[in-house]
Design a protein around this nucleic acid. Structure first.
Lengths: 100, 100
DNA sequence: AATTCATATCTATATTTTTCGATATGTCGA
DNA sequence: TCGACATATCGAAAAATATAGATATGAATT
């Protein structure tokens, strides 16, 4: 986990929101069509709808968040679901505590 | 305290280092000439020497860190000393804990 | 196999950030 | 008050990021 890389992700309000929303998908997103749970997170389209940004922008965001280790993608058929990577998030905390 | 603004500060290795160094000035900087303590932090010149970046760059960094509330400047004669603002740092933690 | 749908990647432009040298400001000492 | 020193600010060039439209890929459906 690289503090600087994770901080770059967090230096954008939309990306912070995405992480926030993924904390409680039931509260922030409609139910999925093909599956009846959020165990693997939320599909890209729902996240895009909620932000209002373009599909390619959201895909780029999610990719950078994945590179930083903050989210984990899972493919189900046509859809890619993204969920939080709690271990890395926790590691970011711990490191911040040392640094800050 | 604005999460995004603070995160921007932290998305640069040098600035993270500065915060780290300011945690224990005795360990990372030589003693000051005019005063015999680090109660108000460390002067700009010492920080600049340690980073190797230009004077104007460091001044800009410290200004952005101050804008974000992470450090507090104190003027003593010719020198400006910067120290950590523990309250804001703590607030950043707390907010992250809610968000992340 | 052709079409459709969801997502990823590519390309390009606009904006922001980084970083510096030059200059300005403020303070001390001669 | 003049020069030297520490820091701040300004202006500019280079690099990175943001964002979108166009296109590619991969999977499901017909």
């Amino acid at each position: 986990m690289h503090v600087v890389e994770v901080s770059k992700v967090l230096s954008n309000g939309t990306r912070v929101n995405i992480l926030k929303w993924l904390k409680d998908p039931e509260l922030h997103f409609p139910p999925h069509q093909d599956i009846d749970h959020f165990d693997d997170g939320v599909c890209v389209g729902y996240i895009q709808d909620k932000t209002g940004l373009s599909q390619s922008t959201i895909s780029t965001y999610l990719n950078s968040m994945q590179q930083a280790g903050l989210v984990i993608p899972t493919r189900h058929g046509k859809w890619t679901y993204y969920r939080r990577n709690e271990e890395v998030i926790q590691a970011y905390y711990s490191t911040l505590k040392e640094v800050l």
